[in-house]
Design a protein around this nucleic acid. Sequence first.
RNA 1: GCUACUGUAGCUCAGUUGGUUAGAGCGCUUGACUGUGGAUCAAGAGGUCAGUGGUUCGAGUCCACUCAGUAGUACCA
Length: 515
Amino acid sequence: MPQKIKGFRDINPEINRLRWHIIEKASRVYRNYGFEHWDTPIVEYADSLGKYLPDADSVAEGVYSFRNPEKEPIFNASGNRMTDGAGNFLMENHFLTMRYDLTAPLSRVYAEKIWSPSLINQKDNFKAPLFRRFQYGPVFRFEAKLDPGRFREFWQLDFDTVGSADAASDAEVCMVLSDALEAIGIQRATYRVKVNNRKVLKGVLIGCGIADEKLEQDVLRIIDKADKIGQEGVMLELGKGRKDASGAIIEGLNLNSSTIDAIARFLEGFSETPSRSQLLAHLSNTYTANAIFDEGLKELAEIDAMLNKLGYAENRVIFDPALVRGMAYYTGPVFEVESLSTFIDEKGRERRVGAICGGGRYDGLVERLIGVRVPATGASIGVDRLGELLTLTNALKLQYTGPVLVVVFDPTLMTEYQMIAAELRAHDIPTEIYYGMQKGLKKQLSYADESKSPVAILLGGDELEKGVVTVRNLRLGAQMSGNIVDKNEWKQMAQKEVARGQLVTHVKEILTQKD
RNA sequence: GCUACUGUAGCUCAGUUGGUUAGAGCGCUUGACUGUGGAUCAAGAGGUCAGUGGUUCGAGUCCACUCAGUAGUACCA
C-alpha cells in the first residue's frame, strides 16, 4: 500500500476549516495593527537559514536539506563571485534547506529586499528601515521522535516588527497575541500571555558568576524546565544531576553550591505567581547587580505601564521570571502563551496542551546575514497546536453547512438536476449533484449527511410532471429522527413539495433557520 | 537517544495451563426496497495474529532480535 511519510499529515476538511478559521481571524487582527501579508519560498539556501547547516548530502540534524540540482556560482563574504587560480568562476550545487520557521526567512527578506544593497556600505550612519509583516504557512523540521501533536510539517502564523528597538513594540506583541486569540474565539480565562526578559535572566546569572555563554544557555535551559521538574529538579540538574522517574540518568552541570543557591534564591522569590507590579518591585529591590539587568527591568516596567493603560490586565498578560524559551537567539523580552484549558485523554487523565504561541525580541538575527544590527521583535501562533487544543478541549464549535444535495432519482433527468443546481448556485447557495455509482436513495442521503448538507432536493418523473420539487430539511429531519414514531408525520414535517418557481425561496428559508 | 509497556479484521476488543478450520460488536458491500435513509432482516467481503528467526509433534499464545505505536525522559531553530 502507498503510505505517507510519518510526521506529515493529510489535512481533512474538518481540520482545514479549523486551520483557516484560526488564520483568518488572527490575520484580521494583524492587519488591524498594520502588519502586511508576505509569503516566502519553502526552500532557502541553507546559509540563509542560520546555524542549522547540513554537513553532508543528507538530512542534517533537525532540518530537511538537499543539494540544488542546478550549479550556481559561489560567493565570498563580501558578495563577490569566487574564482579559481585560472580566473574561472567556482560553481557548486548549493545546499538548500526547507524552512524550519518563518523568522529566518524574514531576516533574509529583510536583508535582501528591505535593506537596499546601496546602503550596505553606509552601515555606520544608518537607521534601519521599519518593516512589519505577517506570514503563515508550513514549516518543516526533522524530528526523530514524534510526540503526539508534534509533526514534521506544521503551520505557523507569524507577525514581526523589524527595525524598532522600542519596548512599545514588545508591549504591542502582547496586545496582538491577546487580541488574536480572542478573535479566534479563545476565552479570556483560558489563556495567559507570559512575558519575561532575557536581559533580566542574563543579569541575574552574571550576578551569580555565570558569564560564559555556553554555560548561560545550559542554565537557562534548566530554568526553563522549572514548571515541569520543580524547584528540586532544577537544583539537582544544576548540581550533580538526577535520575528521573523512569530511571533515566540526567547529567547535571556540576555548578558549585553557592551558585546554585543564588539561582535557587532568585527562583524562590517567585514561587507564588506575583502580579506584574509585585514582580517589578521585587526585582528592583533585590537585584540591582548590573547594567544589563537594569536595562531588562526598565523594559519590563515600560511594557507593564503600557499594558495597564491599554487595559491588558493580569487576566491577559503576566510576567513569568522563569520563562526562557528554547531559542538562543532571543536577546530581550520573550513571550509565550500558555493555554489553561484541560482535556481528558482516553485514559481518563486530565491533560494540558501547553504553549500555543511563542516569540521574543531577536536583535541579532539580521546581523548574522548582513553584519548590521537590526532590532526586531515578534511572535508566532502555532496553528496546528492551537487547532489541536480547540479540538481536544471542545472549546470552539465552528458552524459549518455543506452544500445542498440534488438527489439523482432518475439518470434521464440529469439535465433537470443540473438546471436546479445552477439556479441555486446563481443565488449563492452551494449546491452539489450526486454523481456516485451507488445509486440507492439511502446511499445518497447518507452522503448528504456526511457532507453536512442542510437540504436534499428530490425530483422524479411525478414531480416533473406536476411542476414541483420535493425539498427535504435534513437538519430538522435529523433532530426529529430520535423521537418520532409515525413515519408519515415525520415525513410531512421534514419534507415539503413546493412549486418549482418557489424552490429558491423555500431553500433560503430553511438555510436561514437557526437550530 | 534512554526506560517501561503494547502490537489479533477499517475501528474497539475477546481468544483458557501451547491443541483441529482465529471470533464478537460497530463499520463496510449487496439484497429484501422497480420513488423516500437516519429502521429491521438476510447474505457477503475483509486476517501473512506487526516482521524475522528459534523452542516444540504442534505457536496468536513461550524465547530472541527487528520494526511500529503509547507513556515518561532527554534534545528542540
